[in-house]
């Protein structure tokens, strides 16, 4: 890709200290974000997808620390930032985040309008009536009818979908370059979910933002993403264009994720599941982290960590399956049939 990345994370390592023990949540994870694209990060809970993206805006919990690697944004290495003051130049202004649960991410004691205005006042230094006008504009922009009246209401007077719109308004109020949406629709109904996804898409076009979705819903991924990164046990194990991941995945974990979709199930037969549990990140992981859960694991998977292999210019996978020396392994049937199956379902 000839395009220059807008943000480039390299070999990021993040450690948490818990009761004197060290938990390595992110193990040398690299990611490039390009201008205007939509990237979806998928993986099960605990795979580190939230932690990884939170480190871009200094929102790690107090016991977490970036211990290695670099996060280059606009010529600055964000991983060297330590103080709140430094982070405040990035957070909300350049990179913003929308959290999962709109019920908990708003202040219940403050008027909706004030909460948006606050973001504008702090980050842009615009005060008073002018900031209020911008807040009202933002409310209109995110599709909240009757903004004048809504401005003076409290979060409990809003429905879940409306609240999520407010959270988005706060996040984009300062026209950030990158918007990170952490499971933005998990707490919402399907119909509302579709509306919110459309809203983010239209804001993205208007403000020329790069959007990162963190989700475990592959349906949402298929809808929004240009590129997909699959995370497992603190690492990105496969990344590629959305079609490459859905139709031509190579990492066994991606296969497992795709084939455990309820939509692919046959009535009366058990759904394929991923056996076992993710590895304990307190321990050092040897070889491929997914190997113990992979029925088709190769001997080398337990010995040595696989490097990234190139599938195409845009598609890489971290699995020994792609090594020329590896025995020939076919993609599972259910993956190859995914497309025809889904088409039959419509």
């Amino acid at each position: 890709m000839a395009k220059e990345p807008i943000l480039s994370a390299k070999d990021v390592e993040i450690q948490f200290s818990l009761r004197g023990r060290k938990l390595t949540a992110i193990r040398k994870c690299s990611l490039d974000l390009y201008k205007g694209e939509t990237l979806a990060i998928v993986g099960e809970s605990g795979s580190g997808k939230s932690v990884f993206t939170k480190s871009f805006l200094g929102m790690l919990d107090a016991n977490g620390k970036i211990i290695g690697g670099s996060i280059m944004y606009d010529g600055i290495d964000l991983s060297k930032y330590t103080t709140e003051k430094e982070w405040m130049t990035i957070r909300g202004k350049k990179i913003s985040m929308v959290m999962q649960d709109p019920m908990t991410s708003l202040n219940p004691l403050k008027k909706i309008g004030k909460q948006i205005q606050e973001s504008i006042e702090i980050n842009q230094g615009i005060k008073g009536p002018q900031a209020k006008k911008m807040a009202l504009d933002m409310l209109t922009k995110v599709g909240i009818p009757d903004p004048e009246r809504r401005y003076n209401q409290y979060p409990h007077e809003f429905s879940g979908g409306m609240r999520q719109r407010v959270v988005i308004a706060i996040a984009v109020a300062c026209h950030p370059d990158i918007l990170i949406c952490d499971e933005p629709t998990t707490a919402l109904d399907v119909t509302i979910q579709a509306q919110i996804l459309n809203l983010v898409r239209s804001l993205q076009e208007e403000l020329k933002m790069t959007v990162v979705y963190i989700t475990h819903d592959l349906g949402v991924v298929a809808n929004v993403a240009d590129r997909v990164a699959v995370m497992y046990a603190g690492q990105i194990v496969e990344s590629g264009l959305v079609n490459e991941i859905f139709y031509d995945a190579w990492h066994p974990y991606t296969w497992a994720l795709l084939s455990s979709l309820p939509q692919l199930g046959v009535k009366g037969e058990p759904l394929p599941t991923i056996e076992g549990t993710p590895p304990n990140l307190f321990n050092t992981i040897k070889g491929d982290a997914f190997a113990p859960r992979n029925k088709q694991a190769l001997a080398i998977d337990f010995e040595e960590e696989p490097p990234f292999f190139k599938v195409s210019d845009t598609h890489i996978a971290k699995t020994w399956y792609l090594d020329p020396r590896a025995p020939k392994i076919e993609q599972p049937k259910s993956i190859r049939q995914l497309r025809s199956k889904m088409e039959g379902r419509r």
């Binding site: 399907v190 298929a222 795709l258 995914l338 889904m342 088409e343 379902r345």
Partner: peptide, 23 residues
Amino acid sequence: KALLSAVPIPDPEIEKKKKLLVY
């Protein structure tokens, strides 16, 4: 119909073409 149209299908080709019905 609106509810069915809102269900995300884990398939990028279908998903990007789909039209959302609003009730």
